[in-house]
Amino acid sequence: MTSCPETARTGTFPARSLAAAGAIGVMLAMVSPPLHAQSDPASPSAPAASPQQTVTSWNVNLGLGVAARPVYPGAKRYEASPVPMLSVRYRDTVFLTPEGLGINLVNYNGFRAGPLLSYFAGRDQGDDARLNGLGDIQPSLAAGAFLAYRFDPFEVAAELRQAVTHTGNGLLGSVRADYRTRITPQAVLTLGLDMHLANGKYERTWFGVSDRQSANSGLPVYTPGGGLQDVGLHANLTWNWSRHIATHVFVAVKQLVSDAADSPIVERKTQVMGGVGLGYRF
C-alpha cells in the first residue's frame, strides 16, 4: 500500500501530528495485498485489490502498530506511540486511508486522479520545551487532489492539499516514487523517494516565529518562504502470514531543507521514523 509515509504527510513530517499520520500511512499502505506494499495509484495510500477480489468488491484493512518518531518536525527528542491502521476501498473508485477520503475520477491504464479530502492535525506548544511560547496550531480539514501512475514495478504519485477550515495552515504538496518487488512468496519490499513542498503560509505556520512568538519563547524572529520542505527515503516490508494476516515493518528518513531546515525551531534536520504493525485484511 503506501509509504510514509504521510502522509500529512501526508507526510511528511509537516507537523508532530502529521508525522504520526505519515507513520499511519506507511503501515496502512503495507497492509495492502501482495505486490502492492506501498500504495494504490489512486492515492499514495489507497490499497490495491487482492488477486482474490474483483474491482466491484470491498477491500478493508484493519490493524494496530507502534511507531517511534520525533515529537515534532525538527525535534531531537523521540517518542513511541500506538498507531491504528484503517484502509477501506470500494469498487476501485472510492477509498478512505490516512491520506484522506478520495475518488478515482480518472482510472485508466495505470493512471488515476481525483479529488481528496483530508485532515491537517494541529500542534500543541506543550509537545516539547522547544515549542513553549509559540502557541498551539489548530487542526484543519484540507481539500485537494491527487494523481498517480503505475507501471509495474514502479509507481509515481503526487498530491496537493489546502487547509480549508484554518486556511492559515497553508498548502502542502508531495511527490513520491516507489519500486516494489516480491522477495519471497510471503514478503513484499517497497523502496522509495519522496519530497514535500509547501507555500509560505504553511512554512510560517509550522516553522516560522512571529514577533509575538519570539517575545514569548525567546527564539529569534523567523519568516520562512514557500518551497521545498524536505526530501526523504522510505522502505516498507510486508510479510503475509496468510491471505488475511500480515506483519508490516517500515523505516523512513527525511532531511529538512531550505527555509524549514533553517528554522530556530529545528533542533535536528535529519528525521528518522520507524515502526511495526499487524494487520488483518478482509
Results as ranks from 00 to 15, higher is better:
V175L: 15
R180F: 01
T165N: 09
A148L: 08
G192P: 06
D194A: 01
G170Q: 10
I183S: 12
G173Y: 00
Q186N: 15
L189V: 15
T181S: 07
H196C: 01
G168N: 15
R180Y: 03
D152T: 14
P185E: 14
E159K: 00
L172W: 00
V156M: 10
R182F: 03
R182G: 06
E155P: 07
H166A: 08
P153V: 05
V164Y: 02
R180L: 11
V164A: 06
V164K: 08
L189F: 02
V164H: 04
A158C: 08
F154V: 15
T190E: 10
F151G: 08
G168F: 04
H196M: 03
Q186R: 15
G173P: 09
R161K: 11
A187I: 12
I183R: 11
T167K: 08
V175C: 06
R161H: 11
L172P: 00
E155I: 12
T167W: 01
E155Y: 01
V188Q: 11
P185C: 10
M195L: 12
A148H: 04
R180S: 14
Y149W: 07
T184V: 07
S174G: 14
V164L: 07
E159G: 04
L197H: 04
P153G: 07
P185I: 05
E155G: 13
T165R: 02
R176S: 10
G173W: 00
F151M: 13
T190F: 00
L193N: 05
Y179P: 13
H196R: 03
